[in-house]
């Protein structure tokens, strides 16, 4: 594998977006890019990552390779990332380490790190990425982040309901309750503020607040978030990158006993 990002912070943002959700991950590298999937320890949150060749300045993968890494270690190395430096990932044919080369031609500087790879035997779940959903919402990731931060302070359960009137996020705590209603809007001046809903039926689902607080860490990847909901199935929270690919979180709902 030889894969070069023209801006090293792209890879840093991707890794930082889920490093607190899962501890380790297998990156599966092939001609068609880098894909990964990992489940959190409580088996409630599934992270999927897709970095297609279009995200790289140059991308070459001669034979399919799996690179297993501890995310905490990789994240430490990526602290060196900045917008002035490129980052090339190298993995040899018999992979036992990942080489990260940061280059800042303007400053005549380069940095090289090596990360030991780990053998990860992880459960893989078969997720149909074309999974039909009853409700799809596209909205500003900034707005979503703020709503999650504000409401999750009040309760460890977070409810999402979507009707033709809009999307309602609500919490019911012991001492306080809160509700945020967002209606579809079109902001011609800044389309990242748009909110659109397409639905075939209404939904009303609850999730544990702590996972939503993990999910919003990925908001730096994109100024938009796509939400997909169906009754009694995991919800999908997806951040798509401008150049293709992105990071998605499947979150299992809570149900009333």
């Amino acid at each position: 594998l030889e894969a070069k990002f023209d801006d090293s912070t792209i890879f840093k943002k991707i890794i930082d977006s889920f490093k607190d959700s899962v501890t380790q991950i297998n990156f599966v590298c092939s001609e068609s890019g880098i894909e990964a999937q990992a489940i959190d320890d409580s088996r409630v949150l599934l992270v999927t990552v897709s970095i297609p060749p279009s995200c790289f300045e140059s991308y070459r993968c001669d034979r399919p390779t799996t690179i297993g890494v501890y995310l905490a270690s990789l994240a430490k190395l990526l602290k060196s990332a900045n917008t002035n430096s490129s980052l090339t990932l190298y993995v040899a044919d018999k992979p036992d380490e990942l080489l990260l080369l940061f280059e800042e031609p303007k400053n005549q500087k380069s940095m090289e790190y090596k990360l030991k790879l780990v053998d990860i035997t992880a459960d893989m779940l078969e997720v149909d990425s074309d999974m039909k959903s009853d409700v799809t919402v596209e909205m500003s990731s900034v707005e979503f982040t703020k709503t999650v931060r504000d409401l999750t302070q009040l309760s460890d359960s977070f409810t999402v309901s979507v009707t033709k009137d809009g999307i309602v996020f609500s919490v019911q705590g012991d001492t306080a309750q809160g509700k945020v209603l967002l209606q579809p809007r079109e902001d011609l001046a800044d389309e990242s503020n748009n909110l659109s809903i397409s639905m075939s039926k209404t939904i009303d689902l609850s999730f544990a607040s702590k996972y939503l607080l993990d999910i919003i860490k990925a908001a730096s990847i994109s100024n938009k978030i796509f939400l997909k909901f169906s009754d009694d199935t995991p919800a999908l929270f997806e951040f798509k990158m401008e150049k293709g690919g992105g990071v998605g979180f499947y979150l299992a709902p809570k149900y009333d006993d």
Binding site: L125, K254, Y255
Partner: peptide, 14 residues
């Protein structure tokens, strides 16, 4: 009280 579903209740292992 709400209970928490697990992912494998919905997805199959590969």
């Amino acid at each position: 009280l709400a209970k928490q579903d697990k992912l494998e209740d919905f997805f199959d292992f590969i």
